[in-house]
Simulated assay, not measured.
Amino acid sequence: MWETDPDVLVTDLGDELILMHAGQGLMFSLNATGRAAWLALPGTPEAVVAALCAAFEVDITQAEADARALLAELAARGVVRRT
Rank of each mutant, 00 (worst) to 15 (best):
V79C: 00
R81Y: 12
V48E: 12
I18D: 06
P45C: 05
H21Y: 03
A32V: 03
P42Q: 13
L71Y: 04
L19P: 01
A63F: 04
I60G: 04
T33E: 13
T4Q: 14
A63H: 08
Q24Y: 09
G23T: 01
V58P: 00
L39W: 05
N31G: 15
A69V: 05
L9D: 08
R77Y: 03
F28M: 05
A54M: 03
L13T: 09
W38Y: 01
G14H: 03
A63V: 05
E64Q: 15
G34Q: 06
Q24N: 05
T33D: 09
G14V: 09
H21Q: 13
T44I: 03
W2F: 15
A69H: 10
R81H: 15
V49Q: 07
A67K: 04
D12M: 02
R68A: 14
H21R: 15
F56E: 12
Q24E: 13
E64I: 02
L17M: 00
M27D: 04
C53R: 14
V10D: 03
G78L: 02
D5Y: 00
V49D: 08
G25R: 07
T61I: 14
G78W: 01
L26A: 05
Q24K: 09
T4F: 00
P6E: 15
M20Q: 11
G34L: 07
V58L: 13
G23N: 05
D5W: 00
R77I: 02
Q24T: 06
W2E: 11
E16T: 10
M1A: 14
L41N: 04
L17Y: 00
F56P: 05
A36V: 06
L9W: 02
G43P: 08
A63E: 02
V8Y: 02
T4D: 04
L39D: 11
D7W: 01
T44E: 14
A63N: 04
L26S: 12
M1W: 09
D59Y: 02
E73L: 10
W2N: 05
T61F: 12
C53F: 01
D15M: 11
V8C: 01
R77Q: 11
L52E: 13
E16A: 14
G14L: 11
V58C: 06
L13G: 11
I60Y: 04
T33L: 10
W2L: 12
A22N: 07
A75Y: 01
R82G: 02
G34K: 07
M27K: 14
